[in-house]
Design a protein around this nucleic acid. Structure first.
Lengths: 151, 151
DNA sequence: GCGAAATGTTAGACAAGGCTAACAATCTGC
DNA sequence: GCAGATTGTTAGCCTTGTCTAACATTTCGC
């Protein structure tokens, strides 16, 4: 039950701190709740930048979901003050939405560059970055950025 | 709308491949659906290892959720063939559950060590690893492992 | 400028994952 | 060996995020 020869790490896993652990999981759950909003806002900013506007149909295509899913999600984003929208019109980011988009893009780029610096191929890097970016703390992001700079 | 001086990367963001992008997001969503199961199975394995058994109350404490939430989740895990359980008894992993737990522990350790090698403090590393481990591809994991070895 | 195609919305279903309140079973200390 | 504490379960509610089917609006081609 102990002294496992494979046990190399101090194992934060350990009994040492169930509470710290609970906090960690709560943090992860909080991050998970924001992931979708972040993905949407980031994508919307991008579409506006590259196409001049963000239409639900383009969001649906790029997110790989159906139009009604997009509609419902956009309603939530509007409710949460990240976007504004009018029926049958394209979408705009609020000030808050723009700030979030900027932050997300920043994180995304650093994570992506970091993975590329590490030697990962572009496609996998893009995929992994999409998943990882929401779970990287400020400190870690700094370390990633530093690594990119010196490589 | 173009030739943004800040546009340093080839921008997989770009219009170049909405479909590839959609696939990436679908992959992320798939990973998200497994995250919780992985967290539970990993924790259950750990509890069995360190305490001899896995009880719902300990899972609840460490995951930072309430007992009924744990109960419902355990039912799903049982339905999916990852654990077996009997009323008012502690939990066991199936063969499949054990395999998944092992794989998760492996990923977790590599990600954790990687973050530590990069210079991150233990607590943040643990927190970030918890979130990141589910979104790291096989290739990336190999690169992480290689980095750890040579540092 | 009209009709077909494309796009957007609404309604309604469903599963996951969280909660509280209430109850049931087990365990523990005398 | 029983009473109270601890642990586990059930019921029921809520939100999120996905879908399909049906309908509404806008846009585009000619």
């Amino acid at each position: 039950m102990h002294d496992d020869p494979h046990e190399v790490l101090p194992a934060a896993s350990d009994d040492r701190s169930p509470d710290l652990r609970a906090e960690a999981f709560q943090g992860v759950r909080a991050a998970r709740r924001n992931e979708l909003a972040e993905d949407y806002v980031e994508l919307i900013a991008e579409l506006i930048h590259s196409h001049g506007e963000a239409r639900p149909v383009d969001i649906a295509t790029r997110m790989g979901v159906t139009a009604p899913t997009v509609a419902k999600t956009l309603d939530r984003l509007a409710r949460d003050g990240l976007i504004t929208r009018a029926k049958y019109r394209s979408i705009f980011l609020t000030e808050q939405g723009r700030a979030l988009a900027k932050e997300c893009r920043h994180r995304h780029e650093i994570v992506l560059r970091f993975l590329l610096s590490l030697g990962l191929d572009a496609e996998t890097a893009e995929r992994d970055a999409e998943g990882i970016e929401h779970h990287v703390s400020e400190r870690t992001l700094e370390l990633f950025a530093a690594f990119v700079s010196r490589n």
